[in-house]
Structure formats: C-alpha cells, structure tokens
Design a protein around this nucleic acid. Structure first.
Length: 566
RNA sequence: GUGCCUGUAGCUCAGCGGAUAGAGCGCUUGCCUACGGAGCAAGAUGCCGGGGGUUCGAAUCCCUCCAGGCACGCCA
C-alpha cells in the first residue's frame, strides 16, 4: 500500500508544480509508512517536511497544496495534515471490507510478490559435515535458511535449497578412526582413543549398532570402512532431524565432486594465471622474525594466495607443503561453481564462527573476477545453551553438544522453529533448556497458532448448524474487523522488508502482532450469539474465513503447523 | 592487537531517519451462562551503555570511549 500512496503523492506534486503552486524542483523519494501510533493514520508521509526547504514554504502549507492536488483512488479515505507537516491517510473503510474477498481468493498464495517472478534463487544452508548429530547452533542456521527460502518463494522466486558437505579429509578420517577404536573397545581390545578423536557418546552408540550388524568380522579392517559406516549413520541422523523440523534440501553437493571434475585445481590455475599465487615457506609480507623462525625450523614451501592485495591482513595458504589444499581452495571452487550456475539470487547462511574465514573465499572470488556482493551472506550469531543454569560448550569434537533431537523430543518442532526465528540473526541467543521445557505453554508460538484454531472452531460450529458464509454482505462488518484488515494489508510490506534485509525474524514479529490484534476481536466480534442477526453473522463468518487464510499463510511461511484444534 | 556482532522495561527481545520508544514473559487487579480460556480488560516499570557530531527531526547515520560475544592455523 505505501507504494500506491507514494505514487499518488508524486502525481500530486507534479500537478501542483504544473499549476505553479509549487516551484519546479526534482521530486525526492516519497516515503510513506504506517505511523508508530495507528490512531494517527493508516499511512503517513513526511514528504512535505523534506520539501519545505525546496519549496520555500512552511511544511504544513506544502502538505495542504499536495492534498489539494491528490488524484482520486478507491482505497483512499480521509486525508489530513498533522503534527509538523505529516500527510496522513486513512484507508477507505468500504474498500477495506471488500478486501476480505481478495484474501480468500488468494488463499495460500496470499501476498505472493512479483519481485522474484521468473527468477531463480539458491539458498545454501546447514552444510554441516557428517561428524556428529545436528546441534542447536546448526539448527539456527537451518531455520534461518529455510525461512529465507520460504520468503523468497513468497517473493515469487523458484528456490533451490542446497547442502554442501565434505565427507573426505582429516576430520572424517578421525571420525573413522574413533569409531574403529570404539568398536574394538567394545569387543574387549585395549586400544586408546586417538588424540584428536571424537569423544562424544554417539560414537559408542554407532559402534554398538555396528557390532550387532557385523559381529567381530571387522577386527582386521582399516579406518576407511568405519568412516563410511559412521558417515552413513550420522547423515541419517542429520537428515532425520531436519525432517522433523520441516527442513528439506533439493541438492546435496559433495565437495569431492570438485576434485573429481578438476575444478579445485582449475581454481588454483586461474588464480595463478591472474598473478595471485606463489610458492614460499612464509608469506611475502612476513617480518624478519617470522622468516628467521621458518628458516630455523626448515619450514617447507607451501602455495600462497596473495589475498593481502585485496584487503586481507596477510596472505593465506591454499595448498599445504604436503600437497593437499586447505579448505579455502575447494570452497572457492565451490562458489565459482555456484556463480556459474546462473542464479539470479544467491544466499548463504553461516554461523558467526565461519564469518571471518568466509572473507578469504570472497577475496578468492574477487581475484577470479566474480562479484562476491552478488552472493548474500547471512551470518547469524551463536546459540548458547544453558542447562541447570550451566553454560554448555558446543564442541562436536569434545562431545559435549546437545543433539537437537533431544530438544525436539521435549518441546517439538514449532517452538524450536519459532524461538530460533524470532530474533535478529545479529544477536546471540541464549537457549535455556529448562525454560524451554517449563514454559512451553506460554510460548508466543501457541498464541499465534491459537488464532488459527479459533477460526477453525467457528467453522466447526458453522458446519454443525449448517450455516455458511456464502453471499455475505461485507458492508455489515464493523470497525474492529476493519482494523484487523488494515494490519493484514501490511503483510506485503512485512514480507518485502524481511526479504530486502534478509531479516526473517520480521515475519515472526508480524505474526505475533497480527495475533495480538485478532484475539481481542474474537472476544467481542461473535458469530453465533442470540443477539447477532443472521446477515451480520454471515458477514462475520466470511471475515473469519479470511482471518483463517491469513494465519495459515503466516504459519506456513514460518514452517510451523496450523492446527485445527489445540 | 585486528575484523565482525551486541548493549533499549525486572527478564527475553522488536523498533526500516519521523509524531507520546513497543511486544512477550513476570508482577497487580478484575472477567468464565463464553463460536475450545494456550483467552480478554485495566495497571506499574525506561539518562534507548557514556560523550561528541550530522539533520527540520537520531534508539536509528558518523566519530570516540566503556562493557560483552565470535573469529583471527600449512584445522574444516
């Protein structure tokens, strides 16, 4: 709606200029927003205050002139000047009530925007390597990523959800070796854990499963089959956890494929061709002390990426002296692959602990001639878990993580989703397990869902009485219903803003606000009551039909269930 | 030390350069003849971390200081 109002104001200014009532000047961007206090107006524009200087008139006077030239529009009700020069708009109440039909007609596609029409978007998220069960930090990324994907779909994009993983390398070898040790220990061998092994209990569980499956046949085997076995089980866990949260991926991209098709080494060659690669024991900008230390230790030469020329504080190793690439090189190759797939919009969800490292990848892309700004990186801050008032450190290696499944067993998917969604990605989250369990009856999530339940309840009652909302006269609706419809009409703005800013928490707050408006209304605007005439009841039933559509849409956007009964 | 994030009600957090800074939880007091009460109504609570600046207008933008989180590997 603000766009429509802004267009009207713009035309009014042009018309006033043509009539000589305002001097000629270039019209600045016309801003229109709902004011903080809804009693003042439905939408307000401060444009007259900005124009005061340009027009050399008092802002209130400019506002008057603009209003006089305002073209007619069906949605415009009362227009007035207020405060220091705001132009205040009311929506036409008659027009507003008719929006009930539009909402019902749009149904699940309610407020689908056209900004992504015909465009392809990709969201990469979770991307946890299969070294342990999904924990809450990764789950935050999963919820943020999935919700952004849903928002992009609501914006009209065709969205691909991708999970990037690495099932090779040292980490996975350690996983295999740890399982091997656990397996051998289980059948009575006295073997010690590897120094960097995975201490978590879950590998004992896997060892037990393995023992039941193969007996003692694997005693003489190397670590590789153990790694494969662990990977298979753990990936199953992760997928199952995501499934429980309503999160799905279209593509699982294996880092190995980048070695198989040569793109890792091609990325290195391309960097070299552009002059960003050299071989040395220490980086070019190293001081005397570093050089001397390297020489004394006989550090062998590695392959460096000259990232310092792109704003980095130092160069980074891309191929170790051993000949193996560091994480950077395949990661750059992966992103090149993404860019080459030609998405119109790319989003990558990362935890704060990966934020700094990602900058090296961005510099790699820049070096190769890609614009990293085309990939929108959403970095969410950390999730800290408290249990019995104690902070639980989240190290997979040390084994002190809490699998998200344990939380899901207790509180279920909807509260977990809402809790992780309903705050800005920029803030740290303290997840108090005891509180989550104890307070699950007071979670706002139920408040929102209950709005949907109440709508459904009215329709159950209507069915019993054989009463329908066909042929309702919407003019019979009252002010409360109109106020609710005003809020509903802001959903498009909420979605647009959430997508522009990649701020999915906006939708959670919008949903809560909308429910907050609904419940008092439900209390006073009754359908089935001896004092409500039949034609009014019919109009109200039609209204609740629209409200049900709204809450269903909101809950679906957040990946939450829209229950018919609580 | 450097980079990123944060500091708003007792707690957890919204707040997109605009009007009297908001919500949930908790607290106080009312409301069940009630379309499922996981509800409704009323009430209390704020040097928006400190200090400068930009602007007609700053919680919001810039600078600086203080406090906290994360990251700064030839780990991934």
């Amino acid at each position: 709606m603000p766009k429509e109002h802004a267009a009207l104001i713009r035309r009014a200014i042009e018309s006033a200029q043509a009539a000589g009532e305002l001097p000629a000047f270039e019209i600045p961007e016309v801003r229109v927003q709902p004011p903080a206090n809804p009693e003042l107006a439905d939408y307000a524009s401060p444009v007259a205050m900005q124009l005061g200087k340009l027009a050399r008139k008092a802002p209130a006077q400019v506002a008057e002139i603009i209003i006089r030239h305002l073209p007619e529009a069906p949605f415009v009700g009362e227009v007035s000047v207020a405060g220091p020069g705001f132009i205040n708009f009311r929506l036409s109440e008659a027009w507003l009530k008719q929006q009930v039909e539009a909402i019902i007609a749009e149904g699940e596609g309610l407020f689908t925007l056209d900004i992504g029409q015909g465009k392809r978007a990709q969201v990469e998220f979770v991307s946890a390597n299969p070294t342990g069960p999904l924990h809450i930090g990764r789950t935050r990324g999963a919820i943020v990523g999935d919700t952004i994907a849903r928002l992009l779909e609501a914006a009209g994009y065709t969205v691909e959800r991708e999970y990037y993983f690495n099932n090779a390398g040292r980490q996975m070898e350690m996983l295999g070796r740890t399982l091997q040790v656990r397996y051998l220990q289980m059948i009575g061998h006295d073997v010690a854990m590897p120094a960097d092994g995975y201490a978590g209990e879950y590998l004992k569980e896997i060892a037990e499963e393995l023992l039941q499956e193969v007996g003692e046949d694997w005693i003489g085997k190397g670590w590789q089959p153990f790694k494969e076995y662990a990977e298979k089980i753990i990936f199953g866990w992760i997928r199952n956890s995501l499934h429980r949260l309503g999160v799905y991926h279209d593509v699982f991209f294996n880092e190995n494929s980048l070695y198989d098709d040569g793109s890792v080494w091609k990325a290195l060659d391309d960097l070299r061709a552009r002059g960003f690669v050299y071989e040395a024991a220490v980086w070019e900008g190293a001081d005397e002390a570093e050089r001397a230390a390297a020489e004394a230790q006989g550090t062998p030469a590695a392959t460096w990426f000259r990232s310092s020329t792109l704003g980095d504080e130092k160069d980074r190793v891309v191929v170790k002296a051993s000949g193996d690439p560091t994480y950077t090189l395949p990661d750059v190759a992966y992103h090149v692959n993404k860019f080459e797939r030609g998405f119109d919009q790319m989003v990558n969800i990362l935890g704060a602990d990966h934020g700094t490292q990602y900058k090296t990848v961005q510099r790699g892309l820049t070096a190769l001639g890609y614009d990293p700004a085309k990939l929108h990186v959403v970095i969410h801050q950390m999730v800290r878990i408290y249990k019995d008032g104690q902070l639980i450190k989240g190290s997979t290696r040390a084994g002190d993580v809490i699998p998200i499944d344990d939380v899901l067993d207790i509180v279920g998917s909807d509260p977990v989703r809402y809790f992780l969604l309903a705050r800005s990605t920029n803030t740290d989250v303290d997840f108090d397990l005891d509180l989550a369990i104890a307070r699950n009856n007071e979670n706002p999530v139920f408040y929102i869902q209950n709005a949907h339940v109440r709508c459904a309840g009215i329709f159950r009652m209507a069915d019993e009485q054989g009463f329908t909302d066909e042929g309702a006269d919407l003019d019979l609706l009252g002010e409360n219903e109109a106020a609710f419809l005003r809020q509903v009409l802001r959903m498009g703005e909420a979605l647009t803003y959430a997508i522009d800013e990649m701020a999915p928490h906006q939708i959670a707050f919008y949903a809560l606000e909308t429910a907050r408006l609904f419940h008092p209304l439900y209390d006073s605007v009754r359908v089935f009551h001896s004092e409500v005439p039949e034609d009014v009841a019919r109009a109200r039933l039609r209204f609740y039909h629209a409200a049900k559509v709204v809450f269903h849409r909101l809950l679906t956007l957040m990946g939450m269930s829209a229950p018919e009964v609580m």
